[in-house]
Every structure is written in structure tokens, then in C-alpha cells.
Design a binder for these strands. Structure first.
Lengths: 409, 409
DNA sequence: CCTATTAAGTCAATTGTCTTGACTTATTTT
DNA sequence: AAAATAAGTCAAGACAATTGACTTAATAGG
């Protein structure tokens, strides 16, 4: 009524939203179950056989699904199973880390088709953007060589970097991460590549990877603790990654906690004790060393007093963190993943057993309380690449709603 | 394909889902903005004028909205604003507490129309169900007297009680809460009243109340810390209450934490220090005393060493809890509410200032980091009553999807 | 004061998507 | 060989949003 009054409302939907959702549901069902017949899909999605037939026909024409040999399953006409076509879609992932940047190309089913890596020059975005755009370009070329059809079927670019975003810069910032966090990365990458770009913090990216091809596959309520240079959590709630009001949800490394045996009330960030950064400090390692993970792996293998001390402190924090996250989220499972050597991850998880008691101690559990997920320096880049696939093909509330050119919700 | 193989998939949707969502969006927009014209609604929801007209016509015929006087707003035909009809729908809320049960009747806009209270006899559900059903019956009669049309427009019954649900019984359980938590309350209430029944823990109910008529009205990312006999948090994420995998999300009182100045690694539940239960223990008060809140209020008003000690410990925990919840959820605001005297709530919040630094320290904040919400023994009952209204009328993903008679997602 | 402009809202036809119920096809059971 | 069962198709129908022209009612401006 008043001309410029701000009206708050959620967006409505229409038939397009319906159709888009149903297509996504089909794709999700095929991803989750491997292969399904039209009749299976109709039963699983509560849609009619006819609707499923129409949508599958569409998806087949679009090259996203394909039929397999008919199978006899007892009485009745044999069914024709369908599955996703891996080459139906591709996406590029970009990880920006403190001293290195990585790219990954994946297909619709999450297989990694190409990788790229480059050192990031000092100086933050001012000097780094060029390196990054070149690396993306190279990965696109590599991908096109492997899969010529990919250029038409590239659904987007996913970027991942340490958070938090949009917070005033820290004072001691040897790698200019704050400069990156406040840099208009989305816009720069979008204009630089012509792709739709998404941005997540690295724990969220790790969770996206776990959800698409890892331990959280098909799990609608999971917490992924990401232990990398820093510490974060990727929150999968109701089957979707939760981002918070400003995209900073899950930055658990910044929770202020009391160190083990502290007598003062001096709370310090969790990641001062539970992160690769803290381990590097204890071991006097250079985090910029490209051989860092090999070094850590080697040191962790043998008995080492400093590693023991670090483990002690980290396990103290992480046991509490798992218990707190279980209590807060009531998830089906907690997944520990990160850019740390698998051997160290195993040591950590073993030392965390027995977990602290929590409401997760249920008799009807089907998943373990704590699992190990990806422990791989490339996990974040894979998750970054998975994000555009998820954004484009996974069922989600926002995909049903109409979009408005002007103000958001 | 195989006869009884479990197929995991999300449910599809159809035009009915579309229509249901759009109706909900209209109602939500009217609730949020007070009154809007059809043209306003069209702009706000991204639907066409015609669609809005059709839906508003429907809603008007259903008695959920009504038109007001046309208003001139400059050039062009005057607009006709619409608003919600308070008598368009009613709901009953039921709170089951340790020694008392309360009922509330609310209307579509959340106004309280009737209240009821009764002592719960010892013995848990075996003896209590009868009392509860009688109290609900009485409240329904009271409501019908005030609003005769309510009987046809009663959309459901919301129940709220302390969680967690479905966990093995505790050993020391003076009020048989565990018996209630494992009792098939939903089914009993549904058959006993003939209404659609929902169940939440009391922190979730408090958050539901804050969202409908309190400090979280129109806020899509809010954490409500509920400090009552126990301690919990109601999580409003993406505009919906988050329940977790088993309905136990937010039971933060069960987080194990180190007491202030602890030198041992002995973690104990947060609510041992930050809850009315812990205050009662310190003050040697009987939690079953109906005058409890008045007593606490009186004691808290004067200087009292025991209250100071409690405040000290509770503030220590709650400051950390707020910082942790902000860091985990990145919400727009945190709301402290509960069944504690307002004076005590003010004391608590004042003592929590300054809050610990967190990612919530943003320049672009529009809401305070910490607010006081409902501090009222009836808050949980109000939230319980708000739940059926929210379930029936608020936009939510699940309302769009088709339902299946057999297994859930 | 008259006309142009602007905005709210309606009308009637159209479109897109899912649904319905009957039908065809292919296999196993009896 | 017939009956039963299940997958999948066909064609018409139902439903809800969209489209574009139209009506109504106000203000702005010459």
C-alpha cells in the first residue's frame, strides 16, 4: 500500500516449482538407491506411475538418467531400472586455503575427473585471483579433454575457504585469510568464469562431500566435524546443509572453552587445542610446507611426547564437542573428517572412545555415534565441487519457491 | 523391483501442495505485516495478482481473513487491506510439568482465550492421564463459551513437556517424568480428544510461542534459551522449529560442562548450575510449592548470598552457552525466556553483559545479540497451543509434500 | 477543471502439471 | 492353458497458476 514499505513474506510457488521438485526427488532417489524402476519411483515418491513416466522420459531426454536391462522379478511384467548418467552433469570445485588453492572437477555421481593445485602468492585476493582463475581455466580444459560434452553440462562452480565470512579482520593474519573472507569472491568468480558460483566455508564443503558420496550419504541429520588447519562443523539438518543467517553456522573452532585442567576462567578458542594449526605449533612445523601431511603422518606414527600432549588436549575438547553437538542437534550420527592424515584421525577417534554419555545413547540407533569420514587434503575441494551438483539437483525447499529479482526473503 | 526392498526417497508434490503452500504464505504474510492488500501480497509473494485474488477469496470464504476499509494511497485505485480473522482458528495447548498440568486456548493470532491448571497426582501417566483429559475437556468447554464457533475451528492440540523423549529412564526421578517421556502420549491424547496432536519439549514450545507472538516474530534464525525447572533451547532455523532426528534437539541442559573454577575434568550437566532446579536446591525450596515463583521473586529481590552464588555459576554457564550457540548457529538473535520471575531474568541478562566475543559481533546487526523473551510460567503452555496453529498455517517444506500412508521418509 | 497517469483489482481464455481409469504387455502360478 | 500379478502406456480430465486486456478509482499537472 505505501509505496516503498518493506513487506516481509515468503515466496509462493507454482507448477514450475512442483515440477522442479519432482525432478529433483527422482534424481535424489536414484542417487540414493542406485537404480530404480518407474514403478519403484512411483511408490517411493508417492507420485503416480504416469507422472513418474513423464518425468523419467524428460530426464532421459535431458541425458540425466538412462535405462538398464529389464529385470524379471517374479510374476508380472519385468521392470526397467533406471540410473543416473554420470556424464549428465559436471561441476568444478575450488578450494582456497592459506597458501594453496585446489580445483576439482566432478560429475553427476560425484566421481572426481580432474584435479589442479597451485601455490597462492602472498598478498591475498589482489594477487591471488589471477592464479585462481587460471587454475579453474586449466581444470575446465582438462575436464573437456576427458569429457567433451562437459562444457555444455557444467552446472556451476563451488568455492570453499576457511570462514568466518563478513567479520572484521583479525590482527594476526599471516595468510591474509580475512582479506579473502571480505573479498567479493562470488562476483569475481562469476564474472571471471561465467558460471553460477556458490561459496561455503571448508567444514560445510566437507559435509557436502560426505553427504553426496561419503558417510552421510542418505543421512538427513548428521554433523560433520571438520578438523583441518582450523576446526569447524558442517551441519546437515533435514537433509540440507544449514548455513545460518550469514553463512557462518558451524564455526565451532571459535567456541571459547576452558583448556583441560584450567583453573582460571580464561576461555580460549577450541581450535587453539583441536586443529592441525595447534599441532603444527607444538611440533614446530611450517604449515606452508607442502610435505606437511607426510611429516605429521611420520611423527604421529612413532611415539612422540608432543603428539601425545596434543592428542590429549584435542581429545579432551573433541569428546566434549561431540557430546555437546549430539545434545544440541540430536543427529543420527557424527562424522569426523578433515585434512589430517588417516592414521592421526584413527588415533584421535580411538582415544575419544568411550564417548561421553548423551541423548545419542539410544537402543534404536542404526548408525554409530561417531564415524570417520574423508581424511584427505582434497576433501574440501571435492565438497566444493559437490555443492553446485547439490544446488542444482537435490530436493530443497528453496528450489520450489519462486524467485524475485528484488529483495530476498 | 524386489518386493519388499526398502526404497529411500523424499516425497513428491502436486498442485495441491502448491496451493497449500501459497495459502500458508498468504497467512504468514498477513500475520507478519498486520494487514496487506491483494496487490501487496502479490508483490511480496511473487505470485500474480490474479492468483492472490483467488486465494484471498478462498481464505475469506473460509473465514480466515477479512477485508478492512479501503485506503487511498495516492494515485490509483484505493487498495483494500486484508487481515487475519482472530476467530478463524483455535487451538488448545497442554503443558505437562512435574507436579502440575496447564491448558491454554488460543486463536489464530495467538491471543489467549482460556486457561486451566490442575495438580498432577503422583504416579505418572497411570494416574495423570485422567486429570489431563478432564482439564482439556474443561478448557474446550470454556473456549466454546467464549467463542461458540470454536468447536468447528479447532485445528489441534499441542502438548509440551520436559524432554528428552525415548531415552532410558533415569534412576532418580521423583516426578516420574521418564514415565511420561516414554508413555505413548500422542496416541492417548488423540483418541481421548479426537484432535490432531503434536508434541514438543518445553524449550521447543517456548520457542514456538516466541516465534508466533514474541521476540522471534518474523525472525527466521533464532535460538531461544529456555530456563525453567531444567534448561533447554528451542531452535528456529530457516523459519521452522528444528526437532532433530528424534525430537530431542535443543536439550542443552544435558550438555556436560566444567563448573566454574573446576580443577578436575569432571563434567556435569549444564542444568545442574543453570536452572530453577539448581536454584531451588541452593535455596532449599520445594519445587512442588505452588508459590515457588513468588518465593523466588521475593528472595531474588533482596541481597542474598545464595542467590548471588547461583547467579554467578549460572551466568558463567550461560555466557558460554550463548557464545557457543551463536558460533554454532549464526542466528540473528538469541532469546532468553523461561518460567522464571522477570526480575530474576533481568538480573541474569544484566550479569551476562558484556557477552563473550563471537561471530555475532557484526556491524550489520539489526537485532540485539541477546533479548529477554517470555518469562512466565505459562509460556510453555502458550507455545504448546501455538504449535497446532503453526503446524496448520505456517509455510513449511513438509506441508508441500505428498504424504504416504506407509513408512515415513 | 479537465486530462493523463497511475495503481488496484477483475475477467476470460490459456498453459502446464499431475491424476484418473481403462488398457496393453509380459511374466509366474496353478 | 487360464488366472493372477505387476509394469507401464494412453487419453481425457482436473486443478491451479498465468496472461493480457479490461474496469475502476484515485491523484498530478497543465
Amino acid at each position: 500500500m505505501n509505496d516503498m514499505r518493506l513487506i516481509r513474506a515468503k515466496s509462493g510457488t507454482n507448477q514450475e516449482g512442483t515440477s522442479a521438485h519432482n525432478r529433483r526427488v527422482m534424481i535424489d532417489a536414484l542417487r540414493l538407491n542406485g537404480q530404480l524402476s518407474r514403478a519403484d519411483l512411483a511408490r517411493a515418491t508417492a507420485l503416480t506411475k504416469q507422472t513418474v513416466s513423464n518425468i523419467i522420459e524428460d530426464l532421459e531426454r535431458d541425458g540425466l538418467v538412462e535405462s538398464l536391462e529389464a529385470v524379471r522379478n517374479g510374476r508380472g511384467q519385468p521392470s526397467t531400472p533406471y540410473r543416473l548418467v554420470p556424464e549428465g552433469a559436471f561441476a568444478i570445485g575450488l578450494q582456497i586455503d592459506r597458501h594453496v588453492t585446489r580445483t576439482i572437477a566432478v560429475d553427476l555421481v560425484g566421481r572426481v575427473l580432474a584435479r589442479g593445485e597451485a601455490n597462492l602468492p602472498a598478498g591475498g585476493p589482489a594477487t591471488g585471483v589471477r592464479t585462481i582463475l587460471e587454475l579453474i581455466e586449466k581444470t575446465r580444459r582438462d575436464l573437456t579433454e576427458i569429457a567433451p560434452q562437459s562444457e555444455d553440462r557444467l552446472v556451476g562452480l563451488g568455492a570453499a575457504m576457511p570462514g568466518p565470512f563478513g567479520i572484521e579482520a583479525d590482527d594476526d593474519d599471516p595468510w591474509m585469510m580475512a582479506a579473502w573472507q571480505n573479498f567479493p569472491l562470488l562476483e569475481t568468480l562469476a564474472t571471471g568464469t561465467g558460471l553460477d558460483v556458490g561459496l561455503q566455508n571448508d567444514a560445510a564443503a566437507a559435509a557436502t562431500a560426505e553427504r553426496m558420496v561419503g558417510a552421510a550419504h542418505g543421512v538427513d541429520h548428521a554433523i560433520c566435524i571438520y578438523l583441518g588447519y582450523g576446526l569447524g562443523a558442517g551441519l546437515i539438518l533435514n537433509g540440507e546443509l544449514y548455513r545460518g543467517a550469514n553463512g557462518n553456522a558451524g564455526e565451532i573452532g571459535m567456541i571459547l572453552s576452558l583448556p583441560r585442567g584450567a583453573s582460571l576462567d580464561e576461555r580460549t578458542p577450541l581450535e587453539h587445542r583441536a586443529s592441525i594449526a595447534s599441532l603444527c605449533r607444538l611440533l614446530d612445523l611450517d604449515p606452508a610446507d607442502p610435505e606437511l601431511y607426510a611429516h605429521i603422518d611420520a611423527i604421529a606414527a612413532g611415539p612422540d611426547e608432543r603428539v601425545r600432549r596434543w592428542l590429549d588436549a584435542a581429545v579432551f575438547e573433541l569428546r566434549a564437542a561431540v557430546q555437546a553437538l549430539e545434545t544440541i542437534f540430536d543427529p543420527q550420527t557424527v562424522i569426523l573428517c578433515g585434512g589430517l592424515p588417516p592414521g592421526l584421525a584413527r588415533l584421535l577417534v580411538e582415544a575419544m572412545i568411550p564417548l561421553l554419555p548423551s541423548i545419542a545413547d539410544r537402543r534404536d540407533r542404526s548408525l554409530p555415534r561417531l564415524q570417520i569420514g574423508f581424511t584427505d587434503p582434497w576433501a574440501v575441494a571435492i565438497g566444493a565441487a559437490a555443492e553446485p551438483i547439490s544446488r542444482t539437483f537435490d530436493p530443497r525447499f528453496s528450489a520450489i519457491l519462486k524467485t524475485r529479482e528484488h529483495a530476498a526473503v
